[in-house]
Design a protein around this nucleic acid. Structure first.
Length: 462
RNA sequence: GCGGCCAUAGCUCAAUGGUUAGAGCGCCGGUCUGUGGCACCGGAUAUACGGGUUCAAUUCCCGUUGGCCGCCCCA
C-alpha cells in the first residue's frame, strides 16, 4: 500500500528520533474527510444504506436452506494453495492469474479462497462425513477473493451463497440443487433463466475434446488469436468465444451432447425431466462449459432475462463427481451451486429504484427528553422499554425538543414519548401521536403497557 | 492481464489559464431555551495524488492511483 496521498511536508519540524513517526501521524490526521485513505482496488464497503438488501437476501437464503434440509457450514477463508490447484485445475484463469496466494509468516503456501466448493469437499473428507446419511447437504455464505479486473458487479472480494450436496449421484439431486438456487432468487423477487448443459465425464469428455480439436484444427486460420491459444490450452472454451469471426465456426462445431456416453446422456435427460417437474425454465446451451476443471456432467448458469448489457451470471453450478476423490477421499459424487451476492443485490437495487424506499429501521417509538432531570430519568425508562423488547430511538445528547422531534419525524416513528420538567414532577409521560399531533398524558408506570397496546393496534391495521 | 472513457463538497452536478471555485440535496446551528413535517437565515465540507509547461494551473501536458465500459474470465 502506498502512502502517496500524504501531503508533502515542507518543514522539518523536529530532529527528534520520532520525527518520522510524528509526521506520518500528522499526515493521517491531515487527510481530508472526503478523501482519506483509499480502498484497496476491487474492495468495497457495504454501507448501512445497502444493508436492507443484503439482509433480505440473507434471510431468504436461510429460509430456503432451512426448508430444504441444508445445514450451514463455515470453512476458513485461508486454505492451502494446493487445495485449489488440485481442485479447480492448474490451467484455469482462477488459479493462474487470479488467486491471492502468498506465503504466511510460517512459510506455508496459502491462498484466500477463490471459491468454497473445494473447501467443502475438504471438510467432507476431513470430518468423515461419508459416514453420515447421504447426501450431505450444506450451505454457506461468505467472502471469496479473485484478483480480477474490477468492473460493475465484479469485485476482488465478493460474497457467495452456496449449496452443496455430496454423496449422491442421482440426477434428481442435480435438478433439486438448481431448484434451490432458483428458489432463493425467486424468494427475493427475481425470476432467473437457466442455461444448462452437460460436460460429460472422464469417459466421454476426452473423446469429445479430441473431436472438437480435430474440427477446429482444420479451420485454425479462421480463428481469433485468443481461440488459437484456447485450442492448445483449453479447447472447451472455444465454444464460449464471442468474437464475430469465430461465431460461424461454433455453429458447425460438434456438440458435446452428441458425444455423451450412454450413462451421461441418460443422466442429462433425467435431470431435464426433473427440472420440468420442478417447473424450472431452462434453455439448452451447448456452448456452456464452466471454467473450473472439476465439473462433470451437469453444468448450469443463472441469468436475469432482458438484461442487454449484463452478461454476468447471477450464479451457477454443476456436478463434480470427481472432486472428492481427487482430493484424496473415497469416490463421492456431488453437485453444488453458488450465487453472487453482490450481483443479486445490484439487481435488487435496480429493481427497487422506482419503488418508494421505506424507512428501513422499523422503529416505531421515539423518546424525547427536556431538561437534565428528564434526561437522567429518561435513560432508565428507555432502558426498561428496550429490555421489554420495544425498539426505541432517542437522541439524549440533544437539548431542544424541536431537534428531537425533527429526528423522530425523519425516522418515521408512530409515537414520541416526551418527558419534560413537568412530567418529571408529576410522574407522568406524554405520548404524542406523530401523525395527527394528538398528545395524551399517561402514568409513567404504565408506559410499557400503553405502548405495547398501541403498537399491537397498529400492526393489525395493515 | 489488454484496450477505451473518466476523476470538482457526503451525494448529484456547475464554472474558470488570473481576487474569496458555485448550486441543489444532505449535515450542523438559528428564527423557536415545551413541540416535527413548511418556511426563512447562518455555518462546515471539494478541484484524487505526484511532476511538468506558465508570471499564474482546478483548467493544458505526463505519470500514479482509483472508478466505469469492452475483452479475458467468472459470482
Amino acid at each position: 500500500m502506498s502512502s502517496n496521498r500524504a501531503p508533502k511536508h515542507q518543514k522539518r519540524v523536529s530532529t527528534a528520533p520520532f520525527a518520522a513517526v510524528a509526521s506520518a501521524n500528522a499526515a493521517v490526521v491531515a487527510a481530508p474527510t472526503g478523501g482519506g485513505p483509499q480502498l484497496v482496488r476491487g474492495m468495497r464497503d457495504v454501507l448501512p444504506s445497502e444493508q436492507a438488501f443484503w439482509r433480505r437476501l440473507y434471510d431468504a437464503s436461510v429460509q430456503e436452506f432451512d426448508v430444504r434440509e441444508f445445514d450451514r457450514i463455515e470453512t476458513p477463508i485461508l486454505e492451502e494453495v494446493s487445495l485449489f490447484q488440485r481442485s479447480i485445475g492448474k490451467v484455469t484463469d482462477v488459479i493462474e492469474k487470479e488467486m491471492y496466494a502468498f506465503e504466511d509468516p510460517g512459510g506455508a503456501r496459502v491462498a484466500l479462497r477463490p471459491e468454497a466448493t473445494a473447501s467443502v469437499a475438504r471438510a467432507y473428507i476431513r470430518h468423515g462425513m461419508i459416514s453420515l446419511p447421504q447426501p450431505v447437504r450444506v450451505w454457506y455464505w461468505g467472502p471469496m477473493f479473485r484478483h480480477d479486473r474490477p468492473q460493475a458487479g465484479r469485485y476482488r472480494q465478493f460474497f457467495q451463497i452456496g449449496g452443496e450436496a455430496l454423496g449422491d449421484q442421482h440426477p434428481v439431486i442435480d435438478a433439486q440443487l438448481a431448484g434451490a438456487a432458483v428458489a432463493i432468487l425467486r424468494r427475493v423477487g427475481l425470476i432467473p433463466t437457466m442455461n444448462i448443459n452437460s460436460t460429460g465425464c472422464p469417459v466421454c469428455r476426452p473423446k469429445y475434446i479430441e473431436q472438437l480439436v480435430a474440427y477446429y484444427r482444420g479451420r485454425r486460420s479462421r480463428l481469433c488469436e485468443d481461440c488459437k491459444r484456447r485450442l492448445v490450452r483449453n479447447p472447451l472454451r472455444l465454444l464460449d468465444c464471442k468474437e464475430e469471426q469465430c461465431t460461424p465456426l461454433k455453429e458447425e462445431a460438434p456438440q458435446i451432447v452428441d458425444s455423451l456416453c450412454p450413462e451421461c446422456k441418460e443422466h442429462f435427460v433425467r435431470v431435464l425431466e426433473y427440472c420440468d417437474e420442478l417447473e424450472i425454465s431452462y434453455e439448452l446451451t451447448p456452448s456452456l462449459v464452466r471454467g473450473l476443471d472439476y465439473y462433470t456432467k451437469t453444468v448450469f448458469e443463472l441469468y436475469l432475462p432482458n438484461q442487454e448489457g449484463r452478461q454476468d451470471a447471477l450464479g451457477g453450478g454443476g456436478r463434480y463427481d470427481g472432486l472428492v476423490e481427487l482430493l484424496g477421499g473415497r469416490p463421492t459424487p456431488a453437485v453444488g451451486f453458488s450465487l453472487g451476492v453482490d450481483r443479486i443485490v445490484n439487481a435488487l437495487k435496480e429493481k427497487s429504484a422506482g419503488e418508494q424506499s421505506a424507512n428501513g429501521k422499523g422503529v416505531k417509538i421515539f423518546f424525547a427528553q427536556l431538561g437534565e432531570q428528564a434526561r437522567r430519568q429518561g435513560l432508565g425508562i428507555v432502558e426498561r422499554l428496550r429490555n421489554d423488547g420495544i425498539a426505541v430511538a432517542e437522541q439524549f445528547s440533544k437539548d431542544g425538543l424541536k431537534g428531537q422531534l425533527e429526528r423522530a419525524n425523519r425516522l418515521g416513528v408512530l409515537y414520541t414519548v416526551i418527558l419534560g420538567q413537568k412530567e418529571v414532577l408529576d410522574g407522568t409521560l406524554l405520548i404524542r401521536d406523530m401523525e395527527g399531533g394528538v398528545q395524551e398524558i399517561i402514568d409513567r408506570k404504565k408506559v410499557v403497557e400503553v405502548l405495547r397496546k398501541k403498537l399491537e393496534g397498529q400492526q393489525s391495521v395493515p
